[in-house]
Design a protein around this nucleic acid. Structure first.
Length: 153
DNA sequence: GCCAACGTTGGC
DNA sequence: GCCAACGTTGGC
């Protein structure tokens, strides 16, 4: 299947691009997704070697900060089984896990932030899921949108 | 901190 | 299955 493109949101003070950069092999587990629509993308469509924009949300400077690629496709999110975790889900079982994670490796930290405000000024990006549906933490990006955003750098 | 948009829960 | 009440996300 052809390579696909995604945008993953994170609150940088919880797990942002700096955390990924500091992780062994710049690789980390993308976990804690607790929204069905976002989960369905992760579980059913995100594939090995797909590329991902890392987006910082709910912070002073919101926007895209870099890229990563998928190094391990969907597997059960271990945090759902851990009562100590903020992401614990008592309704989830080992036999029927409800939530999934993927592993990603950092591939690029952008020299500057591409802010949400800047994205919104681009007529060619007006149909981005990011612009049309603000509340979705993992979302598809078209190949064309991917190219346009990289050319803004 | 405000609030719009959306998701989830639970009574009926 | 409907829908009101409530909770969360996320930009500003």
């Amino acid at each position: 299947m052809a390579k696909k493109y995604w945008l993953f949101k994170a609150e940088p003070h919880i797990y942002g691009i700096e955390h990924l950069a500091a992780a062994p092999n710049k690789t980390g587990r993308w976990d804690g997704i607790r929204n069905y629509q976002a989960r369905n993308f992760l579980r059913d469509q995100v594939a090995l070697n797909d590329e991902v924009f890392i987006y910082h949300s709910s912070c002073k400077n919101v926007g895209i900060v870099g890229t990563a690629k998928i190094v391990k496709p969907a597997y059960p999110d271990p945090t759902q089984f851990n009562p100590e975790s903020d992401y614990y889900d008592p309704k989830s079982t080992q036999e029927k896990p409800r939530w999934v994670s993927v592993d990603i490796t950092l591939t690029n930290i952008f020299p500057r932030l591409i802010s949400l405000a800047e994205i919104k000024t681009q007529p060619q990006l007006e149909n981005m899921v990011l612009v049309k549906q603000s509340r979705l933490s993992t979302q598809p990006v078209t190949e064309n949108e991917w190219k346009i955003i990289k050319e803004l750098l």
